[in-house]
Write a protein that binds this DNA or RNA. Structure first.
Lengths: 179, 179
DNA sequence: CTCAATATACTCACTCGATGAGTATATCAG
DNA sequence: CTGATATACTCATCGAGTGAGTATATTGAG
């Protein structure tokens, strides 16, 4: 379930309209290149998998001059998967929050700005759950486990840091959080 | 080069003396289970790869009752690789600092406590390099790249956080840092 | 004008990370 | 005596990620 590849980012770009591998990769790199690091070959690999799953279908387009393109478009199933991902569960560790939450925010802002507040709230809640989990783990950790303690301690601090970061995002995006 | 598997942790445990897969996995889980998350099958897979590389050699030991063990021991090459890793370059992103730096610290403390200060210093320097790199990237980022900015911004803050964390480690471990 | 760099467009082979289930026996506690 | 837990390892499969290769077109600098 946990998704640490830009699979849904690619689906999201396709949700804007049909396109092809080269272009999708380019757009992902320019818009979210410091979020996801995606090589061209990896982009093609993911798209191929999406096609095999039935989230995308392809159609060869010959061109006069340059090499043929595989025009890709979302299937209804693919669109549904993307929607479910966008509305669905928030990430729970530092890295995947950076990747997934920012990606959700990007697409929500683009396609359904009214959902931004919900996505934000879900992520904030999830961070609190993580903080509680880590705090409890730390509390029950035998004192001799020094390195495990240091690791958990850093993870907990990262979660607190993310709280601050989310708070500034709230301001920047003028998100109204419901009570 | 970048190592995000507990490959060297396993080599390190073997540096203490010959052992076998089941035991190595157990020890890694108890000592560093909140640093690395390693399934049993993944442990065996890594050990197999180390054997194929020639870092480890194995030797079947029949037992009276329980299933046979593959007794594993470091080859001179394996020992050299571990040493090079221990003395070598420090990690440069949040996750791999947590994983690799803590692992280096663990083994340095165990086998060569006099090296702890060097490892610490190398990591601290590397964090500063990362801070500079991220700061520069942020400074040159076109203003419209909102999501890339947020991502870099979080990464930069994480590096500052790691500085504080390292500072407390310095105190806890009573590390004397050379000028 | 020409030649090299860059852009368009995609493919392939390979290694490594990760999960989950399976196999088989031994011991121990209720 | 029976079922959970411990010992010890295997296998199949998937997905992440790299690096190189292929082939043509356009652009720009000397």
């Amino acid at each position: 379930m946990s998704n640490l590849s830009p699979e849904f980012a690619l689906l999201g770009l396709l949700a804007e309209g049909p396109s092809h591998g080269y272009d999708l990769h380019q757009r992902l790199v320019t818009d979210l290149g410091h979020v996801w690091h995606l090589s061209q070959s990896q982009a093609y690999a993911i798209l191929k998998r999406l096609e095999m799953r039935g989230d995308v279908k392809s159609h060869t387009m010959e061109q006069e001059k340059l090499p043929a393109r595989q025009k890709l478009q979302l299937t209804p199933q693919g669109r549904r998967r993307f929607q479910e991902w966008l509305d669905g569960g928030a990430a729970s560790n530092a890295r995947s929050i950076r990747l997934e939450f920012l990606t959700r925010l990007y697409f929500a802002q683009k396609y359904e700005p009214e959902k931004v507040a919900d996505i934000y709230a879900a992520q904030f809640d999830q961070v609190w759950v993580s903080i509680q989990r880590l705090t409890s783990l730390l509390a029950h950790l035998p004192p001799e486990q020094e390195y495990n303690r240091l690791s958990l301690d850093l993870r907990l601090r990262q979660m607190h840091l993310i709280c601050e970061w989310l708070d500034e995002i709230k301001t920047k995006f003028q998100i109204e959080v419901p009570a």
